[in-house]
Design a protein around this nucleic acid. Sequence first.
DNA 1: CGATCCTATAACGTCACGTTATCCGCCGTG
DNA 2: CACGGCGGATAACGTGACGTTATAGGATCG
Lengths: 317, 317
Amino acid sequence: MIDAAGLRVMKAIADEGSFTAAAASLGYTQPAISQMVRRLEQRTGTVLVERIGRNVRLTEAGRVLARHATAVLAALDAAEEEVAAIAGLRSGRVRLMAFPSASATLVPRALALVKQRFPDVSISFTEAEPPESLAALKAGECDLAVAFAYEGTDLGRGEEDLDAFVITPLLDDEVRLAVPEGHAVAEQETVDLADLAGEPWIAGCPRCRGHLLQLTHDAGFRPDVAYETEDYVAVMGLVAEGLGVALIPDLILRTVHHEDVVALPITPASRRAIMAVTTPDLQRVPAVKATLDALAESARGQSRAPTVRAPEPAFSI
Amino acid sequence: MIDAAGLRVMKAIADEGSFTAAAASLGYTQPAISQMVRRLEQRTGTVLVERIGRNVRLTEAGRVLARHATAVLAALDAAEEEVAAIAGLRSGRVRLMAFPSASATLVPRALALVKQRFPDVSISFTEAEPPESLAALKAGECDLAVAFAYEGTDLGRGEEDLDAFVITPLLDDEVRLAVPEGHAVAEQETVDLADLAGEPWIAGCPRCRGHLLQLTHDAGFRPDVAYETEDYVAVMGLVAEGLGVALIPDLILRTVHHEDVVALPITPASRRAIMAVTTPDLQRVPAVKATLDALAESARGQSRAPTVRAPEPAFSI
DNA sequence: CGATCCTATAACGTCACGTTATCCGCCGTG
DNA sequence: CACGGCGGATAACGTGACGTTATAGGATCG
């Protein structure tokens, strides 16, 4: 019934003392004010203005509206400013999720970039494997997820509705074979997995294990999985002690070193794609977009070879 | 840029959890909400709603708007209610002015009527002679004035712009001659002023004195004004002591009695018109209208003969 | 896999709310 | 007292915001 525009007009009249002055102060013409007051009066069923001679004075009801106008307009301005702050990256909160090995450098560097560029944007970060992070994204508990997919597989458990997501490839991560120093294949330029059919294997996370099974199956054997652990430091230790061999993504090798372990390219080459995932709506939120850009930039610095490519994902996902 | 309607919509979405439910709760159709959100989003340049599957969720910016909506809508409702209270006579303040002798019964009775009917309407009351009360009305320091005009004169000092006022006749007040008991004319039914040419006169307020001079001039003499006082109790005392005769309005005689004074009709008869004066705008203010009506009703009870007449003033004013 | 529940979009009507042009009344001034 | 300027009211009009109905599209569930 009564709206902010009406209150603004009443306040202007109260402040300026005449319709004409009020119109000027609001950037309107005088008849606009005249009609606005008339409309307000017939809506409220009340006289709001006394016309005395050639100037006007507010009635009690008019003063009531003018008085409330201050509070209402201030609250409106506050809301507007707060939204503008979010739009202008002077505020905003991003809930980021990434799988553990992305947390090592890719994510920290992106966080630092955002912090440097938009100090008032805050990012909360949670570690989660792709299936969980995508579920969180879907559930609205997360704005941006960093996930990965091995070549030939998809992001989630295989039944995700990927259409609802926007996927930005960040980098390609080559999968290498980790063997102990002095292993029979340690001096080769590259290794054919079929040569390792008899070796004990060390498997990583469930999805990595799946990938291992896929690759060995393609190579014609079933691996003897001697150990399973999600901790790559442990994997390296096990390999170093000669307890088995393992497939390890290159990205991890950059942070988890071990003197007695050699990482070799494999044949045929296998990669995993690391990508940022969000929704079309969230991607348009400035703080999310800024974080996404920072991730892409961070990834550009991470890749050994400049593997940044077209916006389309490299794999069928 | 952002208005109350938009906030109301955002709040409804936040509360209801879907566009359809929000529409229902606001009495709109679903597309109305859909479009409203779209407009808000392009105005603010911000994503306000995440569309996830077949339901929606507010973004941070959307939640900001929904949060502010509460405050803004509450303030708007408060303003509306306060104005409605004034319109509904559950509130309101009337500044009333009346000349002293109206204060005796006419005004108190009217005040009591208003108080009884509309306990929450408050009336402030100030005594003032017609010129001052009309000036106050014009200056906006008064909402309603009770004034009088002697037959053949006007309300103010003679140069008032009466078009700006709305005048409601309240009652006709006959002017009588007060003489001491036992005076030569005391037994007459009616008195011709010319018979009192040689008497000492007692004059009242300035305007009354002007009226006295007018009447005596018409009767063919100049009165010997022995005393002047605005206090009618004093006038009665002076008359009772035989120090002079005086013209006194009937209305005053009803509250100021004196055993030794006789009040007689005069020939030709002279009256003063008592009336309520306000402005067209103020007359439409409920509390003012209620007070005006109460004054008219009070006057109806005061008049000895039912002298209430057509809405037009009885005199040329 | 179809029913159902949600949102998006198109097409459209209408009213709120601006504009310009003009009139009228008040008020100060030569 | 005529006149000019200032301020408000009104008329006529254009446009855009905002609602409607009808319909399509996609997600989710039995």
